[in-house]
C-alpha cells in the first residue's frame, strides 16, 4: 500500500503523543513483525498534544491524539480531513482514492462525482452543466 502512495509522490507522516523512543521500540518489537522492514515513513512525536490541539484531534481527558487524517496539497493547503474515534481504524483504500481524486482535480480543473475512481467520468463545471449532470453522470 505504501508503494502506491510513494508512486503518487505522497509523503506520509504519522504522529502520536508517544515519544520517539517508544516509536523506535514499537517499530522493532511489533511493526517490523507485521510489515517487512517496519513502517517506512517518519513517526513523529507530539508530546503534550500541542500539535494535535491545533489540528483539532487532541483529547485532553485521555491525553492522546485521536485518529485524525489530513491531506495537504503542494501549496500547503489542507484539502481534506477525517477524524475517527479511536475504536475504528481507517480505510487506506479510501485515502488513496481521495488523493488520486485531488491530484486529478488539481491537474485538470475538472471535478469528481461521488465515489469517483480513476478512469471514470468527471464533470466540467460551468453554465452548460447546470441541470444536465443527469445526462453525463449516472451513478
Amino acid at each position: 500500500m505504501y508503494d502506491e502512495f510513494k508512486a503518487l509522490d505522497v509523503v506520509v507522516l504519522s504522529m502520536s503523543t508517544d515519544s520517539r523512543f517508544v516509536h523506535k521500540m514499537w517499530q522493532e518489537h511489533e511493526l517490523s513483525k507485521m510489515l517487512q522492514g517496519g513502517v517506512p515513513f517518519p513517526m513523529l512525536s507530539d508530546g503534550g498534544g500541542k500539535i494535535g490541539a491545533i489540528y483539532g484531534v487532541y483529547d485532553e481527558a485521555a491525553g492522546v491524539d485521536i485518529r485524525g487524517r489530513f491531506i495537504i496539497d503542494p501549496d500547503f493547503v489542507i484539502r481534506a480531513m477525517e477524524v475517527l474515534a479511536p475504536e475504528v481504524g481507517r480505510n487506506p483504500k479510501e485515502l488513496l482514492r481521495q488523493v488520486k481524486a485531488f491530484q486529478h482535480v488539481r491537474a485538470t480543473g475538472e471535478v469528481t462525482p461521488s465515489g469517483w475512481e480513476p478512469g471514470q467520468v468527471t464533470l466540467k463545471p460551468g453554465p452548460a452543466l447546470v441541470g444536465r449532470v443527469w445526462e453525463v453522470w449516472k451513478p
Binding site: F5, V11, L13, S14, Y55, F76
Partner: peptide
C-alpha cells in the same frame, strides 16, 4: 512543502 502530504494522528503505539 511542494509535495502532497498525508498526516495521520493516532492514539498510541502498542
Amino acid at each position: 512543502k511542494g509535495k502532497w502530504i498525508v498526516l495521520c494522528f493516532y492514539p498510541g503505539d502498542f
